[in-house]
Design a protein around this nucleic acid. Structure first.
Lengths: 352, 352
DNA sequence: TCTTTTTCTGAAATCGATTTCATAACAATT
DNA sequence: AATTGTTATGAAATCGATTTCAGAAAAAGA
């Protein structure tokens, strides 16, 4: 058995309460006593058992993380790793621990969340996605459990905190980046449309096209199924290439998908950027290391995570302080996957 | 306040102990009572508070994970994500939770470990590396705390469980792969030599070279500092190219470093595989998505994680069952970053 | 010197479960 | 009918801390 507060108390000839107060450095204990007790704690090799404290304080000082497909798929994408990095760093600074859901299916993740909440395993939760028909957020709201979403709230926008990019704008910028470089045949490749990010980025894409009078046909809007990216990437690329006017510019909502598509294109001997320009999202390390290096929208995933975590911790410390939404700015990082082209000259009637 | 076991007990007209027994489905409670109590638990919305249980059971059902540079750098590398995936899945199957260290420096990670152990926050620990001068493993041994190392033990090999590849063999295979394809000028690029993986892989590399009578000069053995990979990659590549006989085949101990080197080489207009063949390690998704796709040694990181976690959980369930070491097999995954070359013909005296 | 205030510490209750030990009620055995 | 054995449940202690409330001792004020 390890040394407890009582053992220390006995040896120091004080009450357990005194030892407890020494631990939390209460001003109500004299310096003399503190010194004496601390010395004995050292001698006896005393260490606080966190579980005792948790029980009475009703606070675990840990934050739960909910990933979309949890470990199974999320970890594949460096974007999530970056977010986790941000969260981890903020947690560390505030002396919080991290607890990950380990479920694989949507349902088992939901069960993990219930356990976290009802079992009082964590003080608050960060949800790393925003998705249609998702049960997690409604559940957390219903139970009035502190949480922060990384992504755009689908409803109850003013009822909880979220951290997000302005994805519509970001995607519009990305699309304009291609348009400005002469591209008129545009394609959009996104993830599952159930996720709000994908929708927003599609919106931005369409918006930009519209404003420039560019028609975007439905068949140049594709989505990649993350469960089987490589195969899907190939199929999708073939479909895109078989169009009468294949796109010369591709907006792809994630670097990881970007690489998948690049590799499928290259297999078809399509050169990047000479034949097709590509712009990705997130600016993860894979964008930097790709060949050619990928031009991408930096969404600052680290920052997203950091703000989410800090925001949640703020809320935990003072529940009245509810920050509604934090928008992290985005910037386009120019690398080598985009090229300027001569736009096809539209046949024009002589006006004069 | 939430519903406790006492509330349920009162309402059901039984003792708290009975409710507790119903929760753990003890055979000592009659089916009738069980049914009745369960119904009331449902009605009242009772949920087990894990913290109460933790305190008396002295077991948290959670596993702590120690990463080498913790979140800050480890997450950058998909290799760790893969391991985490394996761990996560095994934990889920066994109803364990995961707790990550959040420290950034070696020292603060060590502090995290102390907190985990002494604060009894976790039941066991998985250390994701094996490193010279590391304080974590000795600490865990000294305190007789259950743990598993992913990597090769530096000492006390028979005293704790570890999961590893046979890195010497794996690296020898990789090197032979190049040698078999005619490469005679070989280079080795590894991470920090303080890590046992790097050393082993270097050993294997040297072994293979030796056996084929290939001389390996010290200046074609390099290491990449993970803190600043891109810049270091460039420097290192320049140094390698300026050798009188620059290597035609490169063994690189990690896909991530492999990509870094590839991108530096390509910047110098060195073609892969035509000018330089590269073989990496780990077979993470970035190897698959690289351009050209990277030939690599599959170390089965998922498996490494899964076995580590399952092994630890075994030990937790039955401390006498100490599996010493688990070696996960490796295989070379052939892709497009290696090519056969005509070895330079050594000037030979006519023997006849 | 006596009262009041302040400073420091202790006793005991509490957090929410588990578990040991005891016992009532009933069945089985002789 | 008396004894033994089962079965089902309860009372109370316990895990390791925190915290409220109270009280002793010392300092300050009258």
């Amino acid at each position: 058995m390890s040394v407890t507060i009582k053992d220390v108390a006995k040896r120091a000839n004080v009450a357990p309460s005194t030892v407890s107060r020494v631990i939390s450095d209460s001003p109500r204990i004299s310096e003399d006593t503190k010194k004496r007790v601390r010395k004995i704690m050292d001698e006896m090799g005393y260490h606080l058992n966190i579980n005792g404290r948790v029980l009475v304080r009703q606070s675990t000082q840990t934050i739960g993380i909910v990933m979309k497909d949890s470990a199974t798929h999320s970890f594949e994408n460096p974007f999530f790793s970056e977010i986790l990095k941000g969260i981890s760093e903020s947690c560390h600074a505030n002396e919080y621990s991290l607890n990950l859901t380990t479920g694989e299916s949507e349902e088992s993740i939901f069960q993990d969340v219930i356990k976290m909440v009802q079992g009082k395993r964590v003080d608050g939760i960060i949800v790393l996605y925003s998705k249609e028909d998702d049960k997690v957020v409604p559940y957390l709201m219903e139970h009035n459990f502190p949480f922060v979403v990384v992504g755009k709230p689908l409803y109850g926008a003013n009822k909880f905190m979220y951290v997000d990019n302005d994805n519509i704008e970001a995607s519009r910028d990305a699309t304009n980046y291609l348009i400005d470089r002469g591209h008129r045949e545009l394609g959009f490749i996104g993830g599952d449309l159930k996720f709000e990010v994908t929708r927003d980025r599609l919106k931005g894409f369409k918006l930009a096209a519209e404003q420039h009078g560019i028609e975007v046909k439905d068949h140049s809007i594709k989505s990649i199924d993350l469960n089987d990216t490589v195969e899907n990437g190939k199929k999708l690329v073939k479909a895109l290439l078989s169009l009468s006017k294949p796109p010369t510019g591709l907006v792809i909502t994630d670097d990881y998908n970007g690489l998948t598509v690049m590799s499928a294109l290259q297999e078809e001997n399509i050169r990047i950027p000479q034949d097709v320009s590509i712009i990705g999202f997130n600016n993860t390390m894979i964008a930097k290391l790709a060949n050619p290096p990928l031009t991408t929208v930096d969404t600052n995933p680290y920052q997203l995570g950091f703000e989410a975590s800090s925001g949640l911790i703020d809320i935990l410390h003072d529940p009245s302080k509810v920050k509604r939404g934090v928008i992290i700015p985005t910037t386009i990082i120019e690398r080598d996957s985009c090229i300027s082209i001569q736009p096809m000259i539209e046949p024009q009637l002589d006006v004069n």
